Simulated scan of single mutants.
Amino acid sequence: MLTAYELQELAQTVADLPPEQERAVADEVAGIRAERARQEEGRIADLRSMTDLQVAVLMDVQGVRREAALTLLREAGFVRGAVIEKAYREGYERGAYDHASDPSEMKVPPVDDPQYVTMRGYDIADLLKGA
């Protein structure tokens, strides 16, 4: 990290460059940033291609700290069942639409309805057994 003085010196150096060199510096900086972005995308793609066990082993081998572990898990695609929960709700609502002979019969329970919560728990548990 540059100090305020070092940053000012660097800015002065760039400002003193002839226009063509200033453009070359800007192009070089853009190229470096683009390469870093490609590397980061590749790293995340690699994480997402791993199995859950491979990600867990990677975390253990690297001795990842708690905060970094949460970031790594998020980047690897772990989302505490949010995706399956959303899919379950959408399927449940779609089933209510498909089986209603009259729109007035279409009653999808709210997310916190006790019967819905109980059935969701059983169904998702059964789905996860096969995962």
Rank of each mutant, 00 (worst) to 15 (best):
L47C: 05
R38V: 03
D16H: 07
Y92I: 00
R36S: 06
I44H: 01
M50K: 14
S49N: 09
G31F: 10
D60H: 08
G77M: 11
D52R: 13
R65F: 04
Q62R: 13
L72K: 00
R65Q: 06
E28H: 14
R33V: 14
L2K: 07
A26L: 13
Q21M: 05
T3L: 09
R74C: 05
P19Y: 02
Q54T: 07
R80I: 03
Y5S: 15
Q12P: 03
D52P: 09
L73G: 08
A87E: 12
R66Q: 13
R80W: 05
A30P: 01
I32A: 06
A37R: 14
V61I: 10
R65P: 14
Q54F: 00
V25A: 06
Y92V: 08
I32K: 14
A4Y: 05
G91N: 08
G63M: 05
R65C: 04
R65W: 06
A76W: 06
V25E: 08
P19I: 01
Q54D: 15
T13Q: 11
I44D: 04
T71H: 13
I44W: 12
G91I: 14
Q54N: 08
V64R: 01
H99L: 12
L72F: 11
A4W: 13
S49E: 08
R65T: 00
L10Q: 09
A11T: 13
V79E: 15
